[in-house]
Structures are given as structure tokens and as C-alpha cells.
Amino acid sequence: MGEQMIRFIRFDSTGAVAEETARRISAAARRAIALRGRFLCVLAGGRTPLTAYDRLVHQPEDWAHWHLFLGDERCLAPDDPERNSRAIASALTERVPIPSVNLHWIPAEAGAESAARRYDALIATQMPFDLILLGMGEDGHTASLFPGHETPADVRAAPVHEAPKPPPDRVTLTPLALAAAPERLILVTGAGKREALAAWRRGADLPVARVAALGRTDVLMDPDAAGD
């Protein structure tokens, strides 16, 4: 595994990135359900992923067999609009008939340590995933794996404190969990991501680069992020 497993794919617009993301999620779901009767997908928050989820709402999916997980979550109240689970509910899960027992959200309102322990135990019984969807921050972070932060190697979910962007307390999947899928999609859109994306492609040791190198990963970019 390594660079040969990572493909950087440029699209004509942010909307095209979202459209392709929805298409790939749908295709992965149909493959997984045909093979083993269920689809396990790790979702990301962020504007472009949410746009992709909105497109999925209008497709005839086998929703009863979808199981959804989160790459990270913020330690906020469950109904806080800054929670990834809340944003995904508004964009997708409140609009389609996915059974509530199939929504495996991080209980981050319990505090980072407790939530991480509980989520680690949960996903240990579910992995491997079929597809992992991630974004990238302007500093090259992905999920809540931030530059300069140590991540334990022996757990699947870890608490995060003193995150460089609010809120400071979070829970994130670790590389041990993010490696547990045959494919990862990383969405990189917007001019604010251009510098970090360029640094990554030059070989900078960023969290997103380390996660992408875990296995087959496609990076879907819009023109603003990709630059020239």
C-alpha cells in the first residue's frame, strides 16, 4: 500500500464532486448488500458530503440494509446543529427509511473518553466497513486527526482534546478503524484547501496523507482546491 493506491481525481465543479460521491456511495451499497446483505458506511460532515447525501435521498436505495457510522463527532448536545449526526440527519436520515437501530452515531454528549470507549467497543463488532467517506481541513486534518496530535495505535476510536478548531473536545476514528475498508473517498473542495492539498501532493506528512496511505483511496477534488 502507498502512493500507488491513491488517485487524485479532478472534477469540473463542487457539484460534480457531490454527484460522483453520491453515485459511488450508491454503487458501494448495492455491491455490499448483494454480497452480504448489508452496507456499512462511515460518513463525514461538511458542506460537500451533505450535498452528496441530499442527492442520495432521491435515489431508490435499499435503505433497510444500510448501517451508518461517523468518522468523528463533536462533544456537544445531541440536538446541537454543529453535531455531524445532526447535520446528517437533516440532509439524509430523517428523509429516508433507514431504521433508527442502523444509525450508529458516536455518543459524544457523554464526554470524549466515555464516548470513545463505547464507540470503540461498538465498531469492533461491526468492522470491516464497506466504504469510508472523509473530508480534509485547511490544515490537512481528516476526521478529527489533527497535525501535531498523538493518536493511539491500539484503539479504533479515541478522545480528542484541545482541537485547534472549536469545539476542543471530540471523538475520532483512528487509523486502525480507517484502514478497515476496501476503499476510502476523501472529498477536497474549496480554495481554502488548496495549500494543504498541494503540500500533501508534494509529500508533506499530514494526517490526511497518512490515512489515505492505509489502502485504496480516491481523492475527489474541485477546481478551487486542485488549482492549476
Score class of each variant (00 low, 15 high):
Leu50Tyr: 05
Ala16Glu: 12
Pro147Leu: 04
Glu82Cys: 11
Leu35Asp: 15
Pro175Lys: 06
Asp130Ser: 02
Leu35Glu: 12
Ala163Lys: 03
Asp72Arg: 08
Ser26Pro: 10
Leu50Val: 00
Arg47Thr: 14
Leu92Arg: 03
Thr174Val: 05
Ala199Glu: 08
Leu173Asp: 01
Pro167Glu: 01
Lys165Ala: 07
Val96Gln: 03
Gly46Cys: 06
Arg55Gln: 14
Pro81Ser: 09
Asp222Gln: 02
Ala27Asp: 13
Glu20His: 11
Thr174Tyr: 04
Glu3Phe: 07
Arg201Tyr: 06
Cys41Ser: 06
Ala87Phe: 13
Ala213Gly: 12
Glu109Gln: 10
Ser26Asn: 14
Leu122Lys: 04
Met5Phe: 14
His161Tyr: 13
Ala18Gly: 07
Gln4Arg: 15
Asp222Arg: 04
Asp80Leu: 08
Asp222Ile: 10
Val211Ile: 06
Asp154Lys: 05
Ala32Trp: 03
Ala28Trp: 08
Ile88Met: 10
Ala199Gln: 08
Arg36His: 15
Arg210Ala: 09
Thr48Arg: 05
Ala28His: 12
Val101Gln: 15
Ala18Asp: 04
Ala199Pro: 02
Lys165Val: 02
Ala44His: 01
Gly140Lys: 00
Ala77Cys: 06
Thr189Arg: 08
His104Thr: 06
Arg7Glu: 15
Arg95Phe: 00
Glu94Leu: 13
Gly190Pro: 00
Val155His: 03
Arg202Leu: 12
Ile106Tyr: 06
Val188Ser: 06
Asp130Asn: 05
Leu92Ser: 04
Asn84Gly: 01
Ala198Leu: 12
Ala204Val: 00
Leu43Cys: 03
Leu43Trp: 00
Ala199Leu: 07
Asn102Leu: 09
Ala191Asp: 08
Asp54Ser: 15
Val57Trp: 02
Gly135Glu: 03
Met221Lys: 11
Ala124Glu: 10
Asp224Asn: 09
Pro164Ser: 13
Leu68Asn: 06
Thr21Trp: 11
Glu183Val: 12
Val101Trp: 11
Ser13Trp: 03
Asp224Trp: 01
Gly37Arg: 04
Pro81Gly: 10
Arg118Ser: 15
Leu178Trp: 02
Ala115Phe: 10
Gly71Met: 05
Trp63Ala: 05
Pro207Tyr: 12
Leu214Thr: 06
Leu56Ala: 04
Gly45Met: 00
Asp169Leu: 07
Leu43Gly: 00
Asp54Trp: 13
Arg31Cys: 15
Gly46Arg: 00
His141Met: 03
Leu50Phe: 01
Ala204Ile: 00
Ala64Pro: 12
Ala196Gln: 07
Arg38Val: 09
Ala44Asn: 01
Val101Tyr: 09
Leu176Ser: 09
Ile33Asn: 02
Glu61Cys: 13
Thr172Glu: 06
Arg216Tyr: 12
Asp218Ala: 13
Leu145Pro: 07
His67Lys: 08
Thr151Glu: 07
Ala179Tyr: 07
Met5Asn: 14
Arg117Ala: 14
Arg118Val: 09
Leu35Lys: 12
Ala91Met: 04
Asp62Trp: 12
Glu61Met: 13
Asp79Arg: 14
Ala124Leu: 09
Pro207Cys: 07
Glu195Ser: 13
Gly215Met: 05
Arg170Gly: 00
Gly215Leu: 01
Leu43Asp: 01
Glu138Pro: 06
Asp80Arg: 08
Asp62Glu: 14
